[in-house]
């Protein structure tokens, strides 16, 4: 029988890319009873926040650098105490079927801790693990992750 040309169907499995998102700032609100008010005030002022994390006596979230001054102004107005760490970046390890793959975060820690990169925050979705690091460490982190996951040097989006 004559065969039709084959068709490639599925996404690649496993880690297939490293992504970098820079020009970010890490905000820490250390006024636990005001965090919801602060987030509402930020939303009312049209300031997008993401990667919100709840801690024992604080919250952290990420904003784009261009919003830092406005975040501090809104925080003062609430009033809440918010500390900004500027010049941070997300380095994300992107994979297909992430939740079927155990151990990716362990390998990320192996690679980044081994390379002396401090991980400020982590997060995960079904297709990626995100690590917040200082911008000065991005090149080292990307190189370490490419090596760990055997990605070509060009595999950064």
């Amino acid at each position: 029988m004559e065969h039709s040309p084959g068709t490639s169907f599925e996404k690649e499995r496993g880690v297939h890319a490293i992504q970098v998102r820079d020009d970010l700032a890490l905000a820490t609100c250390t006024t636990p009873d005001k965090w919801l008010l602060l987030l509402k005030a930020l939303a009312d002022n049209g300031i997008p926040v993401f990667h919100l994390k709840l801690h024992d006596s604080s919250i952290t979230f990420i904003v784009r650098s261009e919003y830092v001054d406005r975040v501090l102004a809104v925080s003062d107005a609430v009033p809440a105490v918010t500390v900004i760490e500027p010049n941070v970046a997300f380095v994300s390890v992107v994979a297909g079927a992430m939740r079927d793959l155990s151990g990716i975060i362990a390998r990320i820690f192996d690679a980044l801790v081994g390379a002396g990169v401090q991980i400020l925050q982590t997060g995960d979705a079904h297709d990626a693990v995100h690590c917040l690091i200082r911008e000065e460490s991005v090149a080292t982190a990307v190189s370490a992750l490419q090596h760990e996951f055997e990605l070509a040097a060009g595999g950064v989006a």
């Binding site: 820490t28 994390k53 709840l54 801690h55 024992d56 604080s58 952290t60 939740r99 079927d100 793959l101 155990s102 151990g103 975060i105 362990a106 390998r107 820690f109 192996d110 991980i119 400020l120 925050q121 982590t122 997060g123 995960d124 693990v129």
Partner: peptide
């Protein structure tokens, strides 16, 4: 995380920093 990886146990909602 290494120990969990060895047992193929997936983790979710990871968070680090701020003293924990």
């Amino acid at each position: 995380y290494r120990l969990l990886r060895n047992e193929e146990i997936s983790i979710h909602l990871s968070s680090t920093g701020n003293g924990a």
